[in-house]
Design a protein around this nucleic acid. Structure first.
Lengths: 289, 289
DNA sequence: AAGCAAAATCGAAAATAATCGAAATTGCGA
DNA sequence: TCGCAATTTCGATTATTTTCGATTTTGCTT
C-alpha cells in the first residue's frame, strides 16, 4: 500500500495512469478546432453517468476519472451552464422533473419492467434531430423517458405527463394537439385534437393500444380516442405499436383498424410464438425487447 | 433512557479490499458503508417512500438514510415548503394529487398569500355551470384552486398544471388548445393555440399578465403568448385581469394592448391609490382582494 | 378531565464537509 | 525552448449536518 503522504512532491510519477497511451499522435497539417477534447470526453462520460445513476458525488467522480475534485467541479459547472444538470453541495443531479411526473400517472403500474425495456427498444429506433409523435399511455411514457438525453428532438404528444417530462429537457421541442382532457390517461382527445395533426408530418409514431388481435386489429375502450389516433397515423411515415405482451390476443370495445395500419410492434418476450407468427404474417415486423 | 449506539466512529481503519486507485484520499478515517446521499436525492427518495407507503415517521427515515433526525426534519420542512407533503408530529404524509400538481408551477413562489386571496375573489365571480377560460400563470393557478368544489364547470386553459388540477375533479370538463409547450410557465402557445379559440365562447376569461401600465397597457416578456391571449380575449364575454399589486406600473417586453381590453382587475391591497385611480379612469373596475 | 412521562420538535452553536479564488504546476504542441 | 490552457494546490469561505438543551406535543393513567 502506498503511503499517502501529502508533502512528497514527485509523487505523481508513481501514479497509475490508465487512460493515456504512450503512442505518439500523427502530426496534423490542420490544427483541430479544439486542441484538447479529453475534457469534453470526460464531461460526456459524466453526463452519461448522471443519466444512468441520476446523481453523482464530486468525490466519486474524481476517483472514477482520476482527476482532482476541483476539475470535476469545473466540469459540473460547465454542464450546469449548458442546462443539463443541477449542481448541489456534494455533487450534481439531473433535473428529475421526469421522476416526479412519472408518478403522476396513477394507474397501470403493472408490467413496468417490461414496459421499460420496450421503451428503451423503441427509443433506439429514433435518431437525433427527428420529429416523432407519442401517443398517451404508460408504455409510451417509458418511451419518452428513454428518449431523455437526445438532442434536437421535436415531439408531438397528446399526453400531458409526457409533455411535462420532455418539455423541461434541453434539446426538446414539445407540441400538443388541443382537445378534451381526460384524467385517467392524462391525455387530450376529440375532434379538435385530430384537426391539429392536419398538415403535420412526423417520421415515427409510437402508438399505444389496449388490445391487439389479428382478426379484430387494434381495439380501444373509448370511442373518443379513435379520431386522434387515426390522425396521428395519417401524419406519420412509420407507425410503431408499443404494447407489452399481456395485451396480445385481446379485444377491447371499439376498433381502430386492422394490423395493416402499423409497420412494427415492440413487445416483450412473453409473447407466444403462435401470436408472433400470426402478427408477422399480417405484415408487421415484431421486435422483442 | 435507552442509550443508542450512535457514537461509534472509528471502526476498522484498513479495509480488506485493495483500493483500485491509490491516488489520494486525504484523511478519511470513517468510511461510511455507503457514501452519503446528495441532499436533493435524499429528498426525492423520501418523496418516493411517501408515494409508496403514504406516510413516514421521522425516526424510520433517519434510520433508513443514515442521517440524524434533525436532518430528516429539515428535509420534510423543505418538501412541505415546496408543497409536496403535509407534516405532522411524528412524520409526514402526502398531499392530495390536486395539491401536488399545484406545486408543479415551478417559479414565482412570491406573493403567494396575495395570489391566494386574489384567486378566491376571482372564483367568487364565477357561478356553477359556467364556461370560463383560464390563462396560464401562478395567479390563475390559484383561481383554479379556488374553483375546486364547483359543479358542472367547463374550463378552457392553456396551462398544463391547471388542466391536471381541475381535470381530476368531478364536475369539471377541461379543454386545452393545442400549441407549443413552454416549460417555464407549463403553458401552450403559438398560432395553433390561437386557432383553437375560433368559434369558442366563454363567459369569463381570467387573464394573467407580467406588467400593467396605464400608458403601455398589458405587456409580456414573450411574443409568442400574445396571439393566444388575443384569441382568448376574443372568445370571452368578460375579461378579468388577475395580477398582484407588484405588477402594477411596470412594463415588460411586448404589448398586448391597452387597458380597454379588460373589464376588471382583481389585485391585492398593496395597490397604490394613484394607480388605482388611473386604472379606474381607464374604465376598468378594480377589485381589491 | 387532569396530570405525568416519554417522545418529538425547535433554536442555535459546534463540527464536518464541500466550495471558491487565485496562484502554481503540468502536459502538449509549435 | 516557449506558451497556452487545463489541471492541481492551498488557504479562506460557505454550506450542510449534527449535538445539545429547552420546549412542546402525545399518549396513558388516574
Amino acid at each position: 500500500m502506498i503511503e499517502r503522504e501529502r508533502k512528497v512532491r514527485t509523487q505523481h510519477v508513481a501514479l497509475p495512469r490508465p487512460a493515456r497511451a504512450p503512442r505518439r499522435r500523427p502530426r496534423r497539417m490542420t490544427a483541430p478546432a479544439r486542441p484538447r477534447l479529453l475534457g469534453e470526453v470526460r464531461r460526456a462520460k459524466i453526463l452519461a453517468w448522471l443519466r444512468e445513476e441520476g446523481s453523482a458525488r464530486v468525490r466519486a467522480l474524481a476517483d472514477a476519472f482520476a482527476v482532482s475534485e476541483v476539475t470535476v467541479r469545473q466540469d459540473l459547472e460547465k454542464l450546469e451552464a449548458e442546462g443539463h444538470i443541477v449542481r448541489e453541495h456534494g455533487g450534481a443531479f439531473l433535473k428529475s422533473v421526469p421522476q416526479q411526473v412519472r408518478a403522476l400517472a396513477l394507474q397501470h403500474h403493472e408490467n413496468m419492467d417490461e414496459k421499460r425495456r420496450i421503451g428503451r427498444a423503441a427509443a433506439a429506433l429514433v435518431g437525433d434531430g427527428e420529429t416523432i409523435i407519442l401517443d398517451s399511455g404508460s408504455t409510451t411514457t417509458e418511451v419518452a423517458a428513454a428518449l431523455i438525453g437526445r438532442r434536437d428532438m421535436t415531439v408531438v404528444t397528446n399526453a400531458l405527463n409526457i409533455a411535462l417530462m420532455l418539455g423541461a429537457e434541453p434539446g426538446f421541442e414539445v407540441h400538443m394537439p388541443g382537445g378534451h382532457f381526460k384524467a385517467p390517461t392524462l391525455s387530450l382527445s376529440g375532434d379538435r385534437s385530430a384537426d391539429y395533426f392536419r398538415g403535420l408530418f412526423a417520421k415515427t409514431l409510437f402508438l399505444a393500444t389496449a388490445a391487439i388481435d389479428v382478426e379484430a386489429g387494434l381495439t380501444y375502450p373509448a370511442l373518443s380516442d379513435i379520431a386522434v389516433k387515426r390522425a396521428m397515423i395519417a401524419a406519420a411515415d412509420r407507425v410503431c405499436l408499443v404494447a407489452d405482451a399481456s395485451k396480445i390476443a385481446l379485444r377491447s370495445f371499439t376498433a381502430l383498424g386492422g394490423l395493416d395500419l402499423v409497420h412494427m410492434l415492440i413487445t416483450d418476450d412473453r409473447i407466444r410464438d403462435a401470436d408472433r407468427a400470426a402478427i408477422e404474417a399480417a405484415g408487421v415486423e415484431v421486435i422483442v425487447a
